[in-house]
Design a protein around this nucleic acid. Structure first.
Length: 275
DNA sequence: ACCTCCCTGGCC
DNA sequence: GGCCAGGGAGGT
């Protein structure tokens, strides 16, 4: 599922196809993906004939700056991906968004339609949930002391806090588990119970875990839902230490990895290494 | 700080 | 045939 490394890999993969390119046509075939667009007709009207200036990202949101101050925002949800294809080439099923330039087509494929795409004016952007996102976990990671302050007296499980995009933007279910394993902290721990040392360990784990995910092109699971824009699979799945490894030995201590629900999410951890 | 919902392919 | 995966929004 696309989390920060997958979204960032997608962004980097789209730069050559979109940056500085004029959009010839923009089409959304599945109305559900336009549910964040107040007037669905705005999507095409605001993109067609305009030039994409820069490709940005905050957390799991792709944010492309388009001429005349529009921002084209895309969230891949859990099953979405973007691809670059020759104009008019055969489409795979669930191709719901097609944005064409003079050179190629950028397509969004999303079987489960948890993703969305929308073109905002500056006012709409500021009023959207993006305005409430926490700092980006990769480019804007706060110091441990600030994380400690913001965790405060919250009794929420620390894993749930890491998944809260208002606290920190970018981590999802896979990387949150991997971060907590590296930090040797159990995800069930109330955030308020963390010592400063433990928060430092969590903070220190975030960059290496996300960086490794990025280096390997993100995590493509067995369902092949997530692929890079050029169609390759991400290889980070082979490096996962706990996610999806229930009943397999911990790579550090050989204790069997356990699976439990935290905040309604499947969570994997080593019961010996993580306390 | 919780719960439910959305959606579909893959799996048992 | 039914359950599960889960990001985020909305409700309680």
């Amino acid at each position: 599922m696309p989390e920060l490394p997958e979204v960032e890999t997608t962004r980097l993969g789209l730069i050559a196809a979109l940056e500085g390119k004029r959009i010839v046509s923009a089409e959304v075939r599945h109305p559900r993906l336009l549910r964040r667009q107040d007037n669905p007709a705005d999507f095409a009207a605001r993109l067609e004939g305009r030039t994409v200036r820069s490709l940005g990202r905050t957390g799991k949101f792709l944010m492309f700056e388009v001429d005349d101050d529009f921002t084209w925002v895309t969230h891949l949800g859990m099953s979405g991906r973007m691809s670059i294809d020759p104009i008019g080439s055969a489409e795979v099923p669930h191709t719901h968004v097609v944005v064409r330039t003079g050179h190629s087509e950028v397509r969004m494929v999303d079987p489960r339609t948890f993703g969305f795409t929308v073109v905002f004016t500056p006012e709409e952007l500021a009023a959207s949930t993006l305005g409430r996102l926490g700092p980006d976990a990769w480019t804007d990671l706060p110091r441990s002391a600030e994380l400690m302050t913001r965790a405060g007296r919250r009794t929420i499980a620390v894993k749930s806090l890491l998944l809260d995009q208002r606290f920190l933007a970018g981590l999802g279910n896979i990387y949150a588990d991997e971060v907590l394993f590296r930090a040797r902290v159990a995800g069930t721990r109330p955030a308020s119970s963390l010592t400063f040392e433990e928060m430092k360990a969590i903070r220190a784990a975030i960059r290496p875990v996300l960086g490794a995910g990025l280096r390997h092109g993100g995590t493509t699971l067995g369902d092949l839902a997530y692929l890079l824009p050029d169609g390759r699979a991400g290889e980070y799945v082979r490096r996962l230490k706990v996610y999806g490894r229930q009943d397999e030995p911990c790579r550090r201590c050989a204790t069997l990895i356990i699976r439990q629900q935290i905040g309604g999410r499947s969570s994997f951890s080593c019961p010996l290494c993580q306390i």
